[in-house]
Design a protein around this nucleic acid. Sequence first.
DNA 1: CTTGGAAAGTCAACAAGGCTGACATAAAAT
DNA 2: ATTTTATGTCAGCCTTGTTGACTTTCCAAG
Lengths: 171, 171
Amino acid sequence: MGDRGTSSQPKSGEALLFLTDDQLRRGIEAMFFAYRGFTADPDRILAEQGLGRAHHRAIHFINRAPGTTVNRLLDVLGVTKQSLNRVLRTLIESDLVEARVGTRDRRERHLHLTDAGAALERELSAAQRARMRAAYRMAGPEAVAGFRLVLEQMMDPEHRRQYRDGQEGPS
Amino acid sequence: MGDRGTSSQPKSGEALLFLTDDQLRRGIEAMFFAYRGFTADPDRILAEQGLGRAHHRAIHFINRAPGTTVNRLLDVLGVTKQSLNRVLRTLIESDLVEARVGTRDRRERHLHLTDAGAALERELSAAQRARMRAAYRMAGPEAVAGFRLVLEQMMDPEHRRQYRDGQEGPS
DNA sequence: CTTGGAAAGTCAACAAGGCTGACATAAAAT
DNA sequence: ATTTTATGTCAGCCTTGTTGACTTTCCAAG
């Protein structure tokens, strides 16, 4: 779709300099390579236990919101219940997650990490945080602010809501 | 893994403020949600054609370096040759990619996009660039610089090399 | 020149983790 | 009493990773 036009007038002003197709392509590749690095350490740890990235995502969000229900988790993760169910079943069988029947609404299952699950979560997120901490240190505070700003804009609006819900509190 | 210590002294100075575990967790989730958004548009387009994300990656890097060999592509993509081979086979069968037997070394296959392949590439990357352009515009030039800086630091060193190889020229 | 190994690519079979669809059950809501 | 909601389950499909075994081609040492 002939938008090569942008590249033929690259330096028409600072405000546009970073919007050439080539600069955008660089950003696309940066996302690709960075995401690989971002998941590499947890993937290694998980593989040792016969788990995969899907388990990591479930563990992460259960840890963030203990007692969350299956339905809310489905929303956040954006997969089907059949897919999540398979993952949760193995996590429960491996004694990493506990599903407690709801007291108010007994149809609901409230999900919690067991001690072993919490330990694994710490191991996984420690690896991921270490990498991110290193990247943040190298790049500096202003870069980090920019990083987060761009990422937030890249999300679909629904996911952006869920992302913002993860904030400390309603400031 | 007792690195909860960081969170218990959160505001000990501007230089550390952004390195609390909670801030790092926010960054981790930002990556997760942003990457989903980042791939959403191409995924939709690809699904219509019965292709997947793996095909997109191959198409992207063949377009960037026409005539590249399977081996070099393997390096960039970081999958096994068997996995890539399956993807390439469907791309060739669908007349999106052409594999020319090497003239100097006839073991090699040099990969090129066909006209149809180039058209699909433009469609895919136009969607992805549009999203990135919008995110860049909302975030502003300084944020973009920070975004790219952090992403680069997050890559594994080998991938960082490949990423840098994608620059305009050896300035 | 031939022969043996290395390199590039292909084929086969398996696993993880997405997906859809159909159905079961229990509890809540109407 | 009926319907809706939350969850779980079975079956089967697809993509995209994996490993292992194989072919073709090239090159270099004998």
